[in-house]
Simulated assay, not measured.
Amino acid sequence: MSQTVLVLEDDADIAELVSLHLKVMGNEVVKGTSLEEGFRVLSERKIDAVVLDRGLDDGDGMTLCQQLRHQHNGVPILILTAMDSESDMVEGFESGADDYLAKPFSVIEFQARIRALMRRAAVHNQWHHIPAEETDAVSDELSVGSLLFNHLEISPETHSVTLGGKTIDLTPTEFSLLCCLAKRPERVFSKDELLSRVWNTDYDGYRHTVCCAVNRLRSKLERDPDMPKYIHTVWGVGYKFREAATLHRL
């Protein structure tokens, strides 16, 4: 099934290049050059992913990202921009972006990132039109029953999370990260492992991607993110999921 990608890019040549490769992958593309167009398209039709430049005609694309997350809209977002410093990337991830790719970019890497975003979104929405080569990863994620840690319940089958009976809104990437950690309590995952398992990349320049995603998860799950109960940092190594209560598989 064709999926629809919104491309917000003010450079016509780059927009055309990105659109071409998205169409080659079998996607429908809607293009825009401004925040105003982006908000309008997102309000009028179903969008499966967004490729977002930061330097749009009427402002920083990160504004759209922040507002969507504030509205609990979990549409996958890939920021594609010439702003390539580490601080720029951290800002992008902290705004709620799922991935960040700097220009100039490799077409092969761009396509791989989009496939990974689409796969996570497809599982998150219980779609069943996933390419055959990706079904093993999806099956692994869905093979575990519900996980219950005291007041926190994680259901891989329905891609839902509740805390104290209240539904917690997570993006597909945030859910995949939480599920990866929670399925193996006390097991320490390095940032490189999480990049490979969740983001489908081994580029070490994106390790801060993991840090930002963990921080976002903590802000949603932890009463005090500075004193986490569930997601713990193992300094110099990575992260692990821990809960004092016994794990129950429902």
Rank of each mutant, 00 (worst) to 15 (best):
D192Q: 12
S190T: 14
K191A: 08
D202C: 06
E186H: 01
P185K: 00
A213C: 13
D192S: 09
V214Q: 02
C211Q: 14
R184P: 01
H208N: 15
E186Y: 00
T209D: 14
F189S: 05
K191N: 08
C211R: 14
G205F: 11
P185L: 01
S196Y: 05
Y203T: 11
Y206G: 08
V214K: 01
W199T: 05
F189G: 03
R197H: 11
P185D: 01
D204T: 10
V210E: 07
V198Q: 02
V210A: 08
T209N: 14
V188I: 11
Y206W: 13
V210S: 04
R187M: 04
F189Y: 15
D202A: 09
F189K: 04
P185N: 00
R187P: 00
W199N: 09
G205H: 12
L194H: 04
D192R: 14
R197Q: 11
R184D: 01
Y206V: 12
D202V: 08
S196G: 07
C211L: 12
E186F: 00
K191F: 02
H208K: 15
S196T: 07
D204M: 10
T209W: 15
S190R: 13
R207F: 02
C211G: 13
D192N: 10
L195G: 08
D202F: 06
V210H: 03
A213D: 14
T209R: 15
V214E: 02
C212S: 15
E193Y: 02
R207C: 05
L195C: 06
S196W: 06
R207M: 10
T201I: 10
V198I: 04
E186P: 01
N200G: 11
L195Y: 05
A213N: 14
E193P: 02
G205M: 08
L195M: 13
G205A: 09
C212I: 14
L195Q: 04
R187H: 13
L194W: 03
T209V: 13
R184Y: 03
F189W: 12
S196F: 05
D204E: 08
R197N: 06
C212F: 09
R187T: 08
P185R: 00
K191S: 10
T209P: 06
H208F: 14
G205T: 11
P185V: 00
Y203P: 00
T201L: 04
L194Q: 05
S196L: 09
S196D: 06
K191C: 04
S196E: 08
S190P: 02
E193M: 09
W199F: 13
A213R: 15
G205V: 07
N200F: 12
V214I: 15
P185C: 00
L194E: 05
G205R: 14
T201Y: 06
Y206E: 13
V210Q: 09
R207T: 11
L195I: 10
A213K: 14
W199P: 03
T201D: 04
E186I: 01
D204K: 12
G205N: 13
H208D: 15
H208R: 15
D202K: 07
N200P: 02
Y206M: 12
R187N: 01
E193I: 07
N200D: 11
V198R: 01
R184T: 04
E186V: 00
D204V: 12
R187K: 12
R207Y: 05
V210M: 07
R184S: 08
F189E: 03
W199G: 05
L194D: 03
N200A: 11
G205W: 09
S190C: 04
F189L: 06
W199E: 09
C211P: 03
R187D: 01
S190V: 04
Y203E: 11
D192C: 03
D202Q: 09
